[in-house]
Design a protein around this nucleic acid. Sequence first.
RNA 1: UGGGGAGUCGCCAAGUUGGUUAAGGCACUGGGUUUUGAUCCCAGCAUCCGAAGGUUCGAGUCCUUCCUCCUCAGCCA
Length: 588
Amino acid sequence: MSSEKTPIQPASNFIRAIIEKDLALINYATKKWAGSPGDAAHQDAGVVDTAKIRTRFPPEPNGYLHIGHAKSIFLNFGLARDFGGVCHLRFDDTNPEKESQEYVDSIADAVKWLGFDWHNNNESNLYFASNYFDFMYRAAESLIEAGHAYVDSQTAEEMRITRGTLTEAGKNSPWRDRSVAENLSLFREMRDGKHADGSLILRAKIDMASPNFNMRDPAIYRVRRAHHHNTGDKWCIYPMYTFAHPIEDALERITHSICTLEFEDQRPFYDWLLECLAEAGLLAHPLPKQYEFARLNLTYVVLSKRKLIQLVEEKHVSGWDDPRLPTLAGARRRGYTPAGFKLFTDRIGVSKADSWIEYSILEDSMREVLNVDAERRIAVLDPIKLVIDNYPDNQSEDCFAPNHPLKPELGKRTVQLSKALWIEREDFMEVPSKGFFRLTPDGMVRLRYGYVVKCTGCEKDADGNVTVVHCEYLPDTKSGTPGSDSVKVKGNIHWVSASHAHEAEVRLYDRLFKEAHPGEGDKDFLDDLNPNSVTSITAQLELGLKDVSAEECFQFERHGYFVVDKKDSVVGKPVFNRTVTLRDAWQK
RNA sequence: UGGGGAGUCGCCAAGUUGGUUAAGGCACUGGGUUUUGAUCCCAGCAUCCGAAGGUUCGAGUCCUUCCUCCUCAGCCA
């Protein structure tokens, strides 16, 4: 079973190696924590932190989480769990124009769904960057006082021009040498709403000639009159990510601040800022350290926020929770499970190399956990009649089907067999192709959990399509009875009694894109959309599949894994979504 | 053409301070079990670590040069 195959020891990676090394350091072992985020004075008055390390998952509440975030969630929460630490859930809400409570709720739900909890003893460890605005303001004034920041009166356009290029140094702003007093008073005026949006900006004063753009006096506080979902209209200036994020980490005593590769260039500023504030006595050592890993790239999938929004807004999908979407909300409706994601993230590892993970790794991870977890049921997706001509009319009998071949303790259920059955259209071939060993004229096959039958022929309509298949059963071959295997057959097909079937809608999902790298080159990624990514069919199911609850997962034997759609199912009338097919070694 | 990163089997990915035959997973290929062409089990699968030189008794691990890819010029995060 999967639990045996799944490595007990998480695979080593460079971040684990760093943490192992850090754990041996005295300043990590003795760092203090006052029970809540805060400045140096607050934390130093605390006790030695029981959390060996602190990590954080810091989404901006401006959209839905996707599979790429799952990698980060498992990384951050997993590291904390494995090293005796805690992981904070922190909303990085420093840009009021894009953020909302709706996203806050959906993100928290997704993290919980994946199985993580940010509570530690009686601390919630659920934080908002916006709760640190007071401190950030104080930190900004401190920077000004130390001569590390100034108010610039250049326009955004002027700043862009004077920033220089990849090969040319930038030029100092004409406002760069304003006095501390003037900077302070201007900054306060910014806070007090005396200046128009965009007219003034606070910049760190570092080096306009640095080869690293992030050190060319980056903007750290802007004037923006916008209503914030958390702080309302208290502020009209908001800190930039660059400035806010290191502070958030430090206030929360994060030890390992893990982010994606594109933030590598910001690390020098991250360290510069924190060092300045520690020198000013505002922040306590040890300061958090930033580490970067490669974000997830999945073939046949797009994970960019922009593209996901486009798919939703232009209605190429039904919504953010469309089962074809790589959002966690979509994946959940698709039947992907937290355990499957866990296996997946364990398999793909963590490194700094840009890589593309094959989509099949995700699918296979889901198969592996579902194979163990999902009970088996019978469903005929593309029904065609099979009539057992030598079976009595108006008779039916019990057949016994195990609920789970790997878990006999789950018992068996009964399904009814009668003269007229539904079987899969593709399980009959009038003229069999090479290697086909299912139903074919004069051929024998076992009706799974029932009898061996011999095919006697078929009926066709005017167009030559097969409408009914005929067969005769061998009475001594019923599954589970002595001598049932006296007749050996290679083929084994599933069926549902026509008079004991439940009709239901089943949605067959396939990949959303037909190309491994949608939009590669200068193509429009929409051109790579798979036109057959979803097919809705009416299937014939065994009766037990009528009364099921939302999000229950089943293996439809010989087909794949299906989940009861949590949105469109109603009591007694479930709708099933195909999560993933079974592997099929038989190439037609 | 400046800075910051990355290049180990088809796809991922381990490889401590250089030390014997380069982990593991997925995929793939054989074989076995099997009333799911599923699952499961067994076996095979890089003389080679982007390339070329060099140091060394010994290099994926050190040095030099080169090549390829990613990334940075938002008052986004």
